[in-house]
Design a protein around this nucleic acid. Structure first.
Length: 690
DNA sequence: GAGCACTGC
């Protein structure tokens, strides 16, 4: 094979978006001894952010909104809240909050900062009366109402808090970290924070973002506000330079090209692990196959190659394998989805191979269909991906497209809020008293049709009245951490006397990948195990059976393994169920059991899924009641191979892949659909809704 | 007759 057919136009480095590193990332602080405050002090001063300390504090003091452009490794997430604390922003019972889009980030950063300030997290700290740093994520609140001064939490949790305290009055400063990722909760929070600041100007906001988005946030917070409301401050990072190489010609098959590139790197470049970005599991598997075909041609004296896949569908153990250092004389190759772009960080990577594409969710409000589309990555993403090669030393990023294609890349990925169903978020905004959605200051406006569709959905399900205001049920459902149709079933379970079972079904439909069906012979065996739970009525009751069996047999991981169930998913279902149970109790919904009366259960399901009806047709596909769309049953369904006796089903969700598929089906009688399709009478207002 | 980017409450 020829040497690399890449053109190397230069380096992503100083002056660009990845700055030259001054020292190794991360271990400076974590290696500091717990008890020695002196060494911690020294270490903190070595962080690039330190010399901007006074300037940062001045900006927060002077400006309502400070946009911090901080590159990976500058220490903003760990240091800025501490500077603010030391400057007195947490006095008088005030709290400094820092939001993260992911749970792991919130917990791990809180742990690190607790070490730095000389305390610890959790119960031990509570006894010692030294709680200063805490974190809050769903199912886990490691904070103290009185004593926590610096609180790390997921953006979703802070958004939820606005439903209880709309002015977020316990916080003096709120830092929205990783804002450039534009998670839906980040966007909603930023919109609310701009509003909150008008009523509570003393609140300070810090938005931390990557370079390419900073001026967008500045414009957003400056619009309609007095001069000097917002400012930008830029911090250099601690990245090593990454050289970028492009293909000379576009490739028709980037998976094959990726394999070829990996092979070339291995034969011609010095040691260092390789990280490959592809779009999905199928591509990853194919790339692995191509590479294993090369392996026998490896010269006897050449270093070995260790091939690893990384995607969210793997078990935790399988995912952990990518962090294990390879044996001496072996190079690791990690072939990954976008999970390695921001969620998972692997040190030791010196080479990145970027296919230039990503899979993103797209929502079509007209058809209410969600789909996964493979689209070119944004410029911001390609920079982030390249940066993965420069974490521990300088590196090279091979982009599998010509440099000329750079110009056609979008600057950033469209924010999530423009690409998803907004039924639940809009219900929540209404619950916050934001009734005129046209006047809400979105950071990026969602498509008008998506907003209209969400409103229509809310009216049809009795959450919003004809006057555009929340109904009594709507007020309650807005608080529930589940989709609107699921919440509606929980409320209707009172009529059908099946609260106990609906609670389980609600929890089980929320977790994904309950059944583990591996490839090949093991898969056939797993399939047999799953049949033990199968209910002929369909998937909802099958999920119920699986959950009940799980609790009956002691909730053990070995039991799950023996029955082809995911222990992680099942445990999560237990937590979600417990959380939803509290809401049921608060709303006075009885936890009765239907005592095995599956008919009542199925009727209750229709009260939530009444818009998701479908009729079986002779070729084994279904037609949707709304829109007469051709629907294919997902292969994981127990109804995949079987015609429902009545010929009718409701389904949990539909998604467009190569075909339009429906997942989690239950057989129903068609006249049950009519009952809900025509009118739903809101129990509290008595208003009939068509 | 065949499949699933990533998060979050």
């Amino acid at each position: 094979m020829s040497s690399l057919q890449f053109w190397k136009p230069g380096t992503v480095g100083p002056g660009s978006t990845l700055d030259r590193a001054t020292e190794t990332e991360g271990n400076v602080l974590s290696s500091a001894p717990l008890t020695s405050s002196v060494s911690i002090q020294v270490a903190r001063e070595r962080l690039p952010i330190f010399k901007h300390r006074q300037k940062l504090l001045y900006c927060v003091e002077t400006y309502g909104v400070t946009i911090v452009v901080g590159q990976t490794g500058c220490g903003k997430t760990t240091q800025l809240p501490q500077y603010l604390y030391e400057a007195g922003w947490a006095s008088d019972g005030n709290i400094i909050a820092c939001t993260q889009p992911r749970r792991v980030a919130a917990t791990s950063v809180a742990g690190r900062v607790a070490t730095e300030v000389g305390t610890i997290l959790g119960d031990e700290a509570r006894i010692l009366n030294v709680i200063k740093v805490g974190y809050t994520i769903r199912f886990e609140d490691v904070s103290d109402k009185e004593r926590t001064r610096i609180l790390y939490l997921t953006d979703g949790m802070l958004f939820r808090e606005t439903l209880i305290d709309p002015l977020l009055s316990r916080y003096s400063v709120i830092m929205i970290d990783e804002a450039h990722e534009r998670s839906i909760y980040t966007d909603l929070l930023l919109g609310l924070l701009k509003k909150i600041r008008r009523k509570r100007p003393s609140l300070r906001i810090v938005v931390s973002s990557a370079t390419l988005d900073a001026s967008y946030f500045l414009d957003y917070f400056s619009a309609g506000n007095p001069e000097g409301e917002a400012t930008i401050i830029s911090l250099e990072g601690r990245m090593y330079p990454v050289e970028v190489a492009y293909l000379q010609e576009p490739t028709a098959d980037y998976v094959r090209k990726a394999a070829e590139t990996v092979w070339n790197i291995h034969l011609h470049q010095a040691s260092g692990d390789i990280l490959v970005f592809l779009t999905g599991r199928e591509e990853i598997d194919r790339c692995l196959e191509e590479l294993s075909e090369y392996l026998p041609t490896l010269p006897r004296n050449a270093p070995r190659l260790k091939l690893l896949a990384l995607h969210a569908g793997l078990t935790t153990e399988e995912q952990l394998a990518v962090f294990e250092p390879a044996e001496r004389g072996t190079r690791k190759v990690i072939i990954s989805t976008n999970i390695a772009e921001a969620s998972v960080t692997i040190d030791g990577v010196k080479f990145v191979v970027d296919c230039g594409f990503v899979k993103i969710r797209i929502y079509n409000p007209t058809s209410t269909l969600s789909s996964l589309a493979t689209v070119p990555v944004s410029l911001a993403s390609s920079i982030q991906r390249a940066g993965r090669a420069g974490r521990t030393s300088s590196g090279i990023c091979y982009r599998l497209y010509p440099e000329s294609a750079l110009a056609s890349l979008p600057i950033t990925t469209p924010p999530e809020i423009t690409r998803v169903d907004l039924t639940t978020p809009i219900l929540q905004l209404k619950s916050l008293g934001i009734d005129d959605l046209m006047k809400f200051e979105w950071v990026s406006s969602p498509p008008a049709e998506t907003v209209l569709r969400a409103l229509e959905n809310l009216v049809a399900s009795g959450m919003v009245g004809e006057d555009g205001r929340l109904t009594a049920t709507g007020e309650k459902v807005a608080e529930c951490p589940v989709e609107v149709n699921i919440a509606r079933m929980l409320f209707m379970s009172k009529e059908y006397k099946c609260g106990e079972e609906m609670l389980t079904i609600a929890a089980m439909t929320t977790v994904q990948d309950v059944f583990i069906i591996p490839e090949g012979a093991a898969g056939a065996l797993a399939e047999l195990e799953r049949r033990k739970f199968t209910a002929e009525e369909g998937d909802h009751l099958t999920l119920l059976n699986a959950y009940n069996a799980f609790t009956r047999y002691g909730r053990s991981s070995s039991w799950c393994k023996a029955h082809a169930l995911s222990f992680r998913a099942m445990s999560r279902a237990v937590s979600i169920r417990a959380q939803l149970k509290k809401y049921m109790q608060r709303f006075d919904l009885p936890l009765e059991s239907c005592q095995g009366d599956a008919k009542r259960l199925r009727q209750c399901l229709v009260s939530g899924y009444w818009r998701n009806g479908a009729k079986w047709v002779a070729d084994g596909t279904y037609r949707s009641v709304r829109g007469n769309v051709v629907l294919y049953v997902h292969p994981n369904s127990v109804l995949f191979t079987r015609k429902p006796r009545s010929g009718w089903v409701i389904f949990h969700e539909m998604e467009e892949t190569k075909k339009t598929q429906i997942r989690i089906l239950t057989e129903i009688e068609p006249d049950w659909l009519l009952e809900y399709g025509h009118t739903f009478r809101d129990k509290h207002t008595g208003v009939a809704i068509s």
